[in-house]
């Protein structure tokens, strides 16, 4: 599998640690540079949007990510929770991807990381649930001192569940977006 030059999409299953996607993107870059006249639309799209959008994105994307983390961490105090905060975190990554193009972002967060965090979130949720066996049965709150209400560190293991769901939802939705975007690349490659 390592010696094959034709990078298949299914390779991600067999070799989860290899930099297959970077290779695929480089290959795609070569393809597009050869046929620059044919699909300039795709070329400009992969580079991202204009300078204004990029500058605004640099200013706002950190705030959006911070707001998502705030909603996840304060899910047991104020409205929100793991799902809503996770979607906001995923939207911040998608914001980055729409503004700067898919190559820029996939260089930093490749889909191996995304699938790793997806699995990590699900395993964390199930692991905290199984830790309830320490006290007696499944899904039991194993904290003895639950703290006072309206505090950040209170409510037993509900914040831990929120964090696990936040990791899972953000990486899962971003994964769906990334795979649907990469689907266009492969479809365009098939047509040529």
């Amino acid at each position: 599998m390592a010696g094959s030059k034709e990078v298949e999409w299914g390779d991600i299953w067999h070799n989860p640690l290899g930099g297959k996607e970077r290779k695929m993107l480089e290959q795609k870059n070569n393809n597009t540079s050869e046929q620059k006249n044919k699909n300039t639309l795709e070329q400009t799209e992969s580079k991202g949007m204009s300078l204004i959008v990029k500058t605004i994105t640099r200013l706002t994307v950190g705030l959006i990510l911070l707001y998502g983390i705030y909603i996840v961490l304060h899910g047991h105090i104020s409205p929100g929770g793991g799902f809503a905060g996770g979607v906001i975190i995923a939207l911040s990554f998608i914001h980055l991807m729409l503004a700067f193009g898919k190559e820029e972002v996939l260089k930093r967060f490749s889909s191996e990381y995304i699938t790793f965090f997806e699995g990590l979130g699900a395993t964390l949720f199930l692991g905290i649930a199984i830790l309830g066996f320490l006290a007696g049965y499944f899904f039991l709150d194993f904290f003895v001192d639950k703290g006072a209400p309206f505090n950040l560190f209170s409510a037993g293991n509900i914040p831990l569940y929120n964090i696990a769901i936040g990791i899972k939802v953000s990486s899962g939705l971003f994964a769906i977006f990334v795979f649907l975007v990469l689907l266009r690349v492969i479809k365009d490659k098939d047509k040529q």
């Binding site: 047991h76 105090i77 409205p79 929770g81 639950k146 703290g147 209400p149 037993g156 929120n162």
Partner: peptide, 9 residues
């Protein structure tokens, strides 16, 4: 549960 957001609790 000591959680003030009842939906989350």
């Amino acid at each position: 549960t000591k959680a003030t957001n009842l939906v989350t609790s």
